[in-house]
Amino acid sequence: MSPTQRERVRDLLDHHGRTYADEAGITLRDKPAPLYQLLTLVTLFSVPISAGVAVAAARELFAAGWRTPEHLLGSTWQQRVDALGRGHYRRYDESTATALQESAEHLRAAWGGDLRRVRDDAEGDADGIQERIARFPRIGPTGAAIFCREVQQVWPSVRPFFDQRAVDGARDAGLPTDVGRLAALVHDDDLARFAAALVRRELT
């Protein structure tokens, strides 16, 4: 890594190196509850709405106590709409309140409420994980890519993962766009933060 690249990477991590999961108040671990919380956040991201609003809405849902699929399914549709509204999640609040219920139901029915089973079923393969996550209500391919970008923090088999938005951010920052070369710029433990930083830079 050239001195110039080293400075760019350090600047990116210093100024933008925070995962969206962390911003939403998720202490991401390889456990069912935080992985479900990440899925919730990704569901909120999967409409044309700002990242800041999606994060604020996620925080409201979690503050209401809906950090597991069981707790979410114990809420009413109106309670979810109201929580999303407190996070200023407008226009999509009613449809998203429904999608969150459908997602929790799908997680329980298809995967026993544990997203680690998705990873295991895909044998840890990032493409396979994306394919399965994309089947959740509302999420689709773009949301599945966001999930993998964030979950690589606790699922080493997904690393290195840079979705198209992160690669575009790397290009604009004058960094390599080849995934292997890009990953070599940071330690493995920083890959999720680095990918998030590239996206955040692209959005500023």
Score class of each variant (00 low, 15 high):
residue 75 S to K: 09
residue 77 W to D: 13
residue 78 Q to M: 15
residue 78 Q to R: 15
residue 78 Q to D: 15
residue 79 Q to M: 11
residue 80 R to Y: 05
residue 80 R to E: 03
residue 81 V to R: 09
residue 83 A to S: 12
residue 84 L to I: 07
residue 84 L to C: 10
residue 84 L to W: 03
residue 85 G to W: 04
residue 85 G to D: 13
residue 85 G to A: 11
residue 85 G to S: 12
residue 86 R to K: 15
residue 87 G to T: 02
residue 87 G to D: 04
residue 87 G to K: 06
residue 88 H to L: 13
residue 89 Y to V: 04
residue 90 R to W: 14
residue 92 Y to I: 01
residue 92 Y to W: 14
residue 93 D to P: 01
residue 94 E to D: 13
residue 94 E to I: 06
residue 95 S to N: 06
residue 96 T to H: 07
residue 98 T to M: 11
residue 98 T to V: 15
residue 98 T to S: 09
residue 100 L to V: 10
residue 100 L to I: 04
residue 101 Q to P: 00
residue 101 Q to C: 09
residue 101 Q to N: 10
residue 102 E to H: 15
residue 103 S to V: 13
residue 104 A to L: 09
residue 104 A to W: 05
residue 106 H to G: 00
residue 106 H to I: 07
residue 107 L to W: 05
residue 108 R to M: 15
residue 109 A to F: 07
residue 112 G to A: 08
residue 114 D to P: 08
residue 116 R to F: 10
residue 117 R to W: 07
residue 117 R to F: 05
residue 119 R to Q: 10
residue 119 R to Y: 11
residue 119 R to A: 04
residue 120 D to S: 13
residue 121 D to W: 02
residue 121 D to N: 09
residue 126 A to N: 01
residue 126 A to P: 01
residue 127 D to H: 06
residue 127 D to R: 06
residue 130 Q to D: 04
residue 132 R to H: 06
residue 132 R to V: 03
residue 132 R to E: 04
residue 132 R to G: 00
